[in-house]
Simulated scan of single mutants.
Amino acid sequence: MDSINLEIPSLPDNVRIVESFIDNSKDKYHLNDDVYGNIMIAVTEAVNNAIQHGNNGDKDKLVKLTMSHSDEQIRFTIGDEGPGFDYDSLPDPTAPENLHKPCGRGIFLMKHLCDEVEFNNDGKEVVLAFYLN
């Protein structure tokens, strides 16, 4: 399994670096448009969460991204240096009282766009897997 690592300071503008990283992966691994689109949304959402919620926008804290690729799947591991969170007790973003809230949909989106989503290290790390066949 190929593996590439990237570390970025927790600044919102650095999401652009992640977007280029994903663009390069599309060409390198010949990802189809559907998989590429799902990866772009889910991974940038996870990185945004790591920057804003995990590291509280602290530019001295890093977000670590690892991409692993095999013939069957491509996996992204996104980690932050924050305190973690309880990913099992998040409010349902589709509940009527939450529909108009500006945040709370990121993990919901990840779960719908990825083939597998796994939280590790008390929520400080998320693994997003996309099947290629």
Rank of each mutant, 00 (worst) to 15 (best):
M1C: 14
M1T: 13
L6M: 14
L6P: 05
E7H: 08
I8G: 02
P9L: 00
S10D: 07
S10Q: 04
S10T: 03
S10N: 06
P12A: 14
N14P: 01
I17A: 06
V18D: 02
S20M: 11
F21D: 06
F21S: 07
I22E: 04
D23A: 10
D23M: 10
N24A: 14
N24C: 11
N24G: 13
S25W: 03
K26M: 07
H30G: 09
L31C: 10
L31V: 10
D33I: 14
D33K: 13
D34P: 00
G37P: 03
N38M: 08
I41G: 02
I41L: 15
E45S: 09
E45P: 05
V47H: 01
V47F: 01
V47S: 04
N48F: 11
I51Q: 03
I51G: 05
Q52I: 13
K61P: 07
V63Q: 07
L65Q: 06
T66N: 14
M67R: 09
M67P: 02
S68P: 10
H69V: 12
E72K: 15
E72N: 15
Q73S: 12
I74W: 04
R75Y: 05
F76E: 00
D80M: 04
E81W: 07
P83Q: 06
G84H: 09
G84L: 06
F85S: 09
D86M: 08
Y87K: 09
D88T: 14
S89V: 12
P93E: 02
A95T: 08
P96C: 05
P96N: 08
E97F: 08
N98W: 06
H100R: 12
P102W: 00
P102Q: 03
C103M: 11
G104L: 01
G104P: 03
G106C: 02
G106M: 00
G106T: 04
G106V: 00
I107E: 05
I107W: 01
L109D: 04
K111R: 15
L113D: 00
D115K: 01
D115G: 06
D115P: 06
E116F: 11
V117C: 08
E118F: 06
F119R: 09
N120T: 13
G123S: 08
G123M: 04
V127R: 08
L128P: 04
L128A: 01
A129Y: 05
F130V: 08
F130S: 03
N133L: 11
